[in-house]
Design a protein around this nucleic acid. Structure first.
Lengths: 184, 184
DNA sequence: GGCGTATGAATGAAGG
DNA sequence: CCTTCATTCATACGCC
């Protein structure tokens, strides 16, 4: 319902506006407006297989991300909820489109390479079945669509000391910018 | 997936829409969409201490609320389940955020003026003036999560032939708008 | 200055 | 009771 509006936040980094220019408005917000760094890291976590962080994880992630700007636990919570849901949604839509593609190919006998391209187009968001993405160390996955080329080392041993951390490649936009995810 | 699709309902009062404007979509719904009155009353019941209404109570509440719009028992049931759960959840997250905030301020010497009142975010509805009538009853007084006490109190009320009713303070948005809670 | 899109936030409904 | 999914509302931003 209508809880009181949370505070304001004045940030400098707008996320939306993928058209490089980033015509960032000084954005005073009544709702959380994640910074690019926050989004980048959240996305990375998601890509690494995290889908539904526990309360504990949420709390820690939130704490870590608070370095880059105002953020609350619930923002993280919602972010994952939404991201997951919309990926599902997108996937649904995609498969629908694929069906159409098939039909189209049948109709027009389009070269199969189209399928390949289409797949690439939509493959941005990882596999459905959660997890396993970064299973073992060998993951040098600079593979696809990594604008920033994050180098990432992950390890999902729960029994062992989970060393799950990564650092930004290239430009450190903020001083430390070394987010340890080992706390997960 | 059991219950058949409920029909449609066209209501006039939308609840969501915190910006007063209440951009009420003529809301055709496949799922229950409570009217403001319904929510107000449910909230009031909750606030008065009701957490887990019995089947019987649910039935009665539902019947009463049906005056303000389409509603089924299960809606009431779910409402309480969700509301209770989310109150807990919010409380949890808020306290975390509070801690986090402190940490953040310590870490980066952030201006304390940023001290937003996360509380507001998670307060049920603020200590709204809405209906102090309930205060008249021994019913309240317990801070949180005492569902069983509620039942007891409710029973006491009934035993005493106490007519437990109240009317919406201030604005009567609908003519009668007098919900008798004595049936509890 | 009204769209369309992306996405934050909320919450009804289930499942377990 | 807890967690999760689906759907919806609200809003920010870019664009014309």
């Amino acid at each position: 319902m209508e809880e009181g509006m949370s505070g304001f936040c004045i940030r400098s980094g707008s996320v939306r506006g993928k058209s490089g220019s980033n015509t960032n408005t000084g954005t005073k917000c009544g709702r959380w407006n994640p910074t690019t760094e926050q989004v980048k890291l959240l996305t990375e976590l998601f890509r690494s297989g995290l889908r539904t962080p526990s309360t504990d994880q949420i709390q820690k992630i939130s704490t870590q991300l608070s370095f880059y700007g105002k953020i609350e636990s619930k923002n993280v919570f919602y972010w994952f909820q939404n991201h997951k849901a919309r990926e599902r949604q997108k996937r649904r839509k995609v498969s629908f489109d694929d069906d159409k593609d098939v039909i189209r190919r049948e109709k027009h006998s389009i070269n199969a390479s189209t399928q390949y391209l289409a797949d690439q187009m939509y493959q941005v968001s990882a596999p459905d079945r959660v997890v396993e993405t970064l299973q073992l160390f060998p993951l040098n996955s600079f593979g696809e669509s990594e604008p920033e080329k994050l180098s990432l080392h992950a390890n999902e041993c729960r029994d062992n000391n989970t060393v799950f951390s990564y650092t930004m490649g290239e430009h450190m936009e903020h001083p430390p910018l070394d987010l340890r995810l080992s706390f997960l």
